[in-house]
Amino acid sequence: MHETGGGESTLEIINPISKTSTAVFEACGNIWKSKGLIRNFVSRDISQRYRNSIIGYFWTVLEPLLLSAVYYFLFTIISGNPEERYPLWIILGVVTWQFFSRGLNESVNCLTGNKNMIRQIFFPREIFAVSKVFSQLIITTMSLFVAIPFLLYLDIHLTLQIVYIPIALLLVTLQVLGVGWLFAVPNVHHGDIAHLTRFITRAGFFVSPVMWTIGMAKGGREALLEYIFINPMVLPLELMRAGFDGSELAIPMWAIIWSVAFSFFIVAIGLTVFKRTEAKVVKRL
């Protein structure tokens, strides 16, 4: 990239396209260097979200609570008396799925949603997805406080399994970022990607153990569960529940390894594809 120009000075190509072998490291370096900017984007995003609202940040708790109440009511109509801990499980499922769903939809739209800024100034574009997902991560963390009254009411004491909660949040963050980076550039070319993502997150709500748990799906349906475990979101959802109520993680080892490996693999692939293609797509914005 260096060249001797004018006989003396060392010139570098402005914003060269990353090489496949170094794209991930370059992007991670850019994200680290831009942490101040990310912090600024995140704080603005969160403050804008609850602006002009009377109860403000309380919506982070109230929204999953109301949604869970509706699902609980629905489930009770369909299948009779659920287990005692079911309200807690459904709230944790809804909060975790909302993080995945909103984070994914926003990160896939990270280029199209910031086109005015991208066309005016250059800075590492991978940080748009990071800031959107971090905003959702903070909102999700605040939403998790809704579980406290349920823990008290159900007399559940937190155990060392509480470490599952940050692991679950990390896995969702990685999956959302990876898939978001992977599809952000194709979404500029084909707006259909955003519609497809919205459909997948809506359909995934029912296919993933959000309204139900792995324990509830057992009983003659083990063969079907093998397919359910292919979904990499099953592990974070179950980790979140096991982290709060201290129950045993009812997931086979292969599904745990698969979900963790997928999370890191999709980040590497997504970031590489993003860094290799984002520079050329700006003129299509």
Partner: peptide, 8 residues
């Protein structure tokens, strides 16, 4: 914009 790296 080309000189600042926005457009390739």
């Amino acid at each position: 914009r080309v000189m600042s790296g926005i457009y390739q």
